[in-house]
Amino acid sequence: MKDVRYFAPTEMAEATQLLARYGDGAAVLAGGTDLVPQLNYYERHPEAIVFIGNLNLGYVKEDDSKLVIGAGTTLAELLASDLVVAHFGILADAISELGTVAIRTTATIGGNIANASPAADTVPPLLVMDADLVLVGPDGERTVALQDFFTGPGETILDTGELISEIHVPLLNGGTSFKKVGMRKAQSCAIAAVAVRIEMDGDTCTDARVALGSMAPTPLRCTTAEDLLKGETLDADLVARCAEAAVGQTKPIDDQRASAWYRIKAGKALIAKALSEAAGLGM
């Protein structure tokens, strides 16, 4: 076996240069909760491990009507953040059901995104808030919309040498809701997860976002359901049609956690429940 190198850079420029130098042979280590099981079970054989925990990327700030979250912020820190609880309750809801206490102590939000699991629990809440990612590479930084970030299971638009440095979350209006079903409460990968945000003017929906996890090769924005909602009076019938339209956009798989059939059924029910809750309908 080849000798693995370990680096713990303290400067971003050093980190991105190391990642560029080792290319596909580099493994980025943040909290380690996704990477280390792959190492333990010999599913990954990196040439170099680049630990990014010394880059001071753990922070939550409010800046110009948006939340700025450092990619290295742990899930426990987010859950304990007054800013997150006050302005981004569905992220806190999603995190409180993610993993367990000991996982949340080290797992980072940047890692949950960059790992690009279709079941990443932080992603649907970030999608309904129109979050952007700041990506830093050897040649500088760029800002991309989160919804353009994923290209497949474990696949993203990150170039060689690039890291997520920050997540920008606009503080948008509207009622929100996050719902998830898993095999059990603790430590369970979502069978289906739903986040919605809905802006209402009386009974009329003025804007909406619907996002799903574990229902397609990537976390998914359900634009067909969103379009059905905009400008319409929200009632039980519309909620049902939206749920139908949203699952129509999905491509769920059969796996050890659930069948595609079940995911469609559960996803539809979760969407209806989340929409009703976010809109304040007593259904």
């Binding site: 370990y6 713990a8 280590l29 909290g31 380690g32 909760t33 280390v36 099981p37 333990n40 491990i49 630990f51 925990g53 206490v101 000991a102 996982i103 102590t105 080290t106």
Partner: peptide
Amino acid sequence: PVRSCLTIALT
């Protein structure tokens, strides 16, 4: 609390 099985020792 952390999982020692998920913690790279050098960190």
